[in-house]
């Protein structure tokens, strides 16, 4: 299993992708292959197009050009195998819903509009909540959770989906350091199981210390590869436009 992973198709393969957001072209012909089975971070300054890249790859922002493969397939065929943890701002915070109901949504891609959730689904939901340490919050309304607790719940939803590829958009904003570390442990564990994780992130230090793979963006791709090779002073200066001491 470990050997075959290296020949597995890229977790996220983007070719000549262009996308505009609010009338402004944010991505212009970007190409990148993010390998499977790794914990990969997409980093770069604000407005570098990090979020737009993953949103366009997931069809949440219409792409004007280019094509995308997730796990070697077009999006349509892998929906249930790809989980997405959106930025907190896009979620309706005051929606009347409990933590466990959010995690149950992770089973919807497998059950569609009408099929009932089975006992196996319930067990997956419970296990996912246990894994990220929110089992005791199951009945809590989502608007009474802290930022860290809420983010754990959303990760539990991705786990409950049993996706092979988990994509997260700025998962650690508004999250305390302890939660961040715990969530990173869970993500690392997913990669050890052969799953792929791609996170848009802005904290270079974390990416350097905890991630297996880094993509540095500033409009286009500045560099990608091993975090230590990507986050070099020269590359960072090119991306951020300032001299960064390491």
């Amino acid at each position: 299993m470990t050997k075959t992973m290296t020949q597995a198709p890229a977790a996220l393969a983007v070719h000549e992708l262009s996308a505009s957001y609010g009338g402004r072209t944010v991505l212009d012909g970007v190409s990148v292959d993010i390998p499977a089975g790794r914990l990969s971070g997409i980093v770069g300054p604000n407005g570098a197009g990090k979020s737009t890249l993953v949103k366009a790859a997931l069809g949440l922002v219409p792409a004007t050009r280019g094509h995308v493969r997730l796990l070697g397939e077009p999006l349509k065929r892998v929906r249930s195998r790809v989980a997405y943890v959106p930025q907190q701002e896009t979620v309706a915070r005051d929606f009347p819903i409990t933590a466990v109901q959010v995690v149950e949504m992770g089973r919807y891609p497998h059950r569609g509009w009408l099929r009932r959730l089975t006992r196996a689904d319930d067990e997956l939901v419970a296990a996912a909540m246990e894994q990220v340490g929110v089992a005791d919050l199951a009945g809590q309304p989502i608007d009474e959770l802290s930022g860290g607790q809420r983010q754990r719940v959303f990760l539990a939803r991705a786990l409950a989906q049993q996706a092979e590829l988990v994509i997260l958009d700025e998962p650690f904003t508004a999250v305390d350091a302890r939660t961040e570390s715990a969530l990173l442990d869970v993500l690392t564990g997913l990669c050890a199981e052969g799953r792929s994780v791609v996170a848009v992130h802005h904290d270079l230090r974390t990416v350097l210390d905890r991630f297996d793979h880094a993509v540095l963006m500033a409009g286009g791709i500045v560099a990608e590869g091993d975090p230590a090779d990507v986050l070099t002073p020269a590359n960072l200066e090119q991306a951020y436009g300032i001299v960064v001491a390491r």
Partner: peptide, 21 residues
């Protein structure tokens, strides 16, 4: 009949869109 897509998309539109609902 439309309970799942309606409540999922109201709560988290991006997730609901991606999940094929």
């Amino acid at each position: 009949l439309l309970w799942r897509p309606l409540h999922a998309s109201t709560f988290d539109p991006e997730f609901a869109e991606l999940s094929g609902l």
